[in-house]
Design a protein around this nucleic acid. Structure first.
Length: 416
RNA sequence: CGGGAUGUGGCGCAGUUGGCUAGCGCGCGCGGUUUGGGACCGCGAGGCCGGAGGUUCGAGUCCUCUCAUCCCGACCA
């Protein structure tokens, strides 16, 4: 992609109505556009990053046996009545709308009911179990107060997965497998070192704890107590002596930190399947309840967390795997000779499948470097008049101040 | 939803106790000097001051209502 063709531009200032660092950086660098409180549009750069995060999540969910599908956003009222989650007194952050004829509809805030309802058409026998499905879809929640940029929006992108098992043991095996998948996701996103499995309230359906994945960060809304040695934590909301005992945690080993919830997993038991009349028949021909689990990862929230986590005073600094472009390429001066060489390198790298943002603008070097840093592109390559005589390209990592001079072959090796 | 605050060119802001043609910086366009960490000079385009109503000879400045945004809290099934 040529820089001059990008629809977005970088900015030196941020709108005063945006106080969250993650949104400030992403707006400054032209990744997102604010539509209203808690609602953001993804510009081309932001969309590429979002797609990269989705791809990592998708690959790991597929690995643990998840099958991707896509449910609808518009929701029929009747299935939510069956589980008693339609009433605004029960679930207060529904967005609801109506057909012209007056029929009430919900705008999807989660998908247990529709998923169960749909899979009920196919899950009939023990032979049909277990099943794991997931989707990556926009969710809509009428939050009383949106805040913290991408961390708490009214419309946001989420991966939600649902498992269906024929008994508790099978459920627990799936649950554990999915937890491993979650660890793999955060590891690949570069958050592995400071993201912790955290015990939390399991909700009204089970006396078991649920698990949250919490990334330690000052911008977090949650408070957790962390055991750094055991690499697990407990959410403040269930921080009680008896719970610590149950979990084998010692309060002396725990440190209190702020964290962002970047994922969660729940045991749902049979609450939704029973309510929606979805059962299976076992080997003996008996009707049995299904054991369900659900598993969420906030994709757009992760975009915000990663943007903020990997940033410095100069701007964004993406991990290589999710950066919109791996390489920022430019020439130091707009001299025909240098431009020609840079054009050629742009072509060569692109043909190798390397994502390059080619800054073809005729602006001062300082402007270019500042933008390269703000955009957070991992590798910077400059064609300059000094070293190109020896066919050497200037190479720099976003995260390091040091320059290296490499031949094209060395350069490609370094990038790959 | 309770409390607090703010809305003035694309962005950040200034605008005295109401008073003349609404300013400044950045950005944008044109011309020129520059060219290794957001340079400089000149010229120029662009706003009716969130919206509605009111007070007044006169409102960006005062009053009422309303919309939007941000912060704290509550909420987050």
């Amino acid at each position: 992609m040529k820089f001059s063709k990008l629809i977005s531009k970088t900015s030196k200032t941020v709108p005063s109505d945006e106080t969250a660092i993650n949104a400030q950086l992403l707006i400054k660098a032209g990744y997102i556009h604010k539509e209203m409180a808690g609602v953001y549009a993804y510009l081309p750069l932001g969309l590429i990053v979002l797609e990269h995060i989705k791809q990592i999540v998708r690959e790991e969910m597929n690995k643990v046996g998840g099958q991707e599908l896509l449910m609808s956003t518009l929701q029929p009222k009747d299935i939510w009545l069956k589980t008693d989650r339609w009433d605004d007194k029960k679930v207060d952050n529904w967005f609801k709308t109506k057909l012209v004829n007056g029929t009430e509809l919900g705008v999807g805030l989660t998908h247990e009911e529709p998923i169960v309802d749909a899979l009920g058409d196919f899950i009939k026998s023990y032979k049909d179990l277990p099943v794991i499905v997931y989707q990556i879809q926009n969710k809509f929640r009428n939050e009383l107060r949106a805040k913290s940029g991408l961390l708490r929006g009214r419309e946001f992108l989420m991966k939600d997965m649902y498992s269906f098992a024929s008994n508790q043991q099978e459920h627990q095996e799936i649950y554990n497998l999915i937890l491993k998948g979650y660890y793999a996701v955060y590891e690949r996103l570069g958050l592995g070192d400071n993201t912790y499995r955290t015990y939390a309230d399991g909700g009204i359906f089970t006396d078991r704890f649920s698990d949250e994945f919490q990334t330690v960060s000052e911008i977090g809304e949650d408070v957790i107590y962390l055991d750094k040695v055991k690499k697990i934590a407990i959410n403040q909301e269930i921080f009680k002596k008896e719970n610590l005992q149950k979990l084998g945690l010692n309060s002396a080993d725990l440190v209190k930190v702020k964290a962002v919830e970047v994922g969660n997993t729940f045991h749902l038991e049979s609450k939704y399947t029973d309510a929606l009349d979805v059962y299976y028949t076992n080997k003996d021909g008996q009707r049995q309840s299904i054991i369900m689990g659900c598993y969420g990862i906030g994709i757009s929230r992760l975009l915000g967390v990663i943007a903020e986590h990997f940033s410095d005073e100069k701007g964004l600094n993406w991990p290589v795997e999710i950066a919109p472009y791996k390489v920022y390429l430019t020439f130091i001066k707009e001299e025909p000779k240098l431009v020609k060489i840079a054009d050629k390198l742009y072509q060569d790298l692109t043909l190798l499948g390397i994502a390059v943002i080619y800054d073809d603008r005729n602006v001062r070097p300082a402007d270019k470097f500042a933008d390269a840093d703000l955009l957070g592109i991992p590798f910077r390559v400059v064609v300059n008049d000094q070293t190109i005589k020896d066919q050497l390209y200037e190479f720099k990592l976003r995260s390091s101040p040091h320059l290296k001079y490499l031949s094209q072959t060395e350069l490609i090796k370094m990038i790959q």
